[in-house]
Amino acid sequence: MTGWMVPWFRWSARKPGARAWSLMGPGLLFLLVFFLGPLAFMLGYSFMPRGIYGGVKPGFTFEAYKTFFQPLYLGVLWRTVVYSVVCTVACLGLGYPVAYVISRAGQWKNMLMFLVILPFWTSFLVRTFAMMFLMRDTGLINTALIGMGLIDEPIAMYPTSFAVMLGLIYGFLPFMILPIYTSLEKLDHSLLEAAEVLGAKPWERFTKVVLPLSMPGVVAGSLLVFIPALGSYLTSDLLGGSKYDMIGNIIARQFGAGNNWPFGSAASFAMMGLVLIAVLAYLRTRDDAAMGNA
């Protein structure tokens, strides 16, 4: 059945690089055509005049970028950054203790890890809906508060900026826990014993040994939370409403009712610019860390 592959094995054995490139070819070609290609197209669209019924007209203009750099949209950009920073900091504060506990959990490690991996892969839409279901007027939280006599009327928990931030934290927390756990797992415990023998108190052992050594995980986790938070769309759409728009909502609207494709493309590139800054900052701290260790 697989005999047809034999000639390929013979042919590629003689040429350096031929085997690698012919194996990688289809996948790379696909990514070039359907990932990088579209991004390039989008860049082009952001410099073209808008078509009346969506799409673009031929020509060249900075109109889309001019539209974007207005106070209204810069405000949305600012809000997006603030929400993403709050989300990242909160995930770090909540996620680090969890990663630390898992890394010392012994026989429970696998099960505790699975309970983090599960929400990591679970439908974001379903998880956001779960938050709505809890927070709605007739949801469990309001019903419980009324039942306890703490409030008379249900609290409108969404649409609020609090709900959006809570939804973001809920959505991206697993992205923080996994990389921190990985770096804590690699930690050499003899270093802790050495610190203890040398008289370091528990808190000092943490701040001077554990925390610095887990920094790669902290930085990677922060990036993994910050990037999707910047690009998020569903959370603010369902838990926020238009008063708490993030850039993602502005972009999506341009390809629906707004019908302004160049503007949507320009806003996408503003978002990609923020992502790029985050990635570059990450690469930089990673290289610094590597230099420091050397």
Partner: peptide, 27 residues
């Protein structure tokens, strides 16, 4: 080059991936 190309889809926000494909398909 190959390694960087592989990481592009991982760092690109979903919404950007979606609309850029929409633009390509429309074209």
């Amino acid at each position: 080059f190959v390694e960087s190309l592989l990481y592009v889809p991982i760092v690109t926000p979903e919404i950007v991936c979606g609309i850029s494909l929409l633009i390509l398909f429309a074209w």
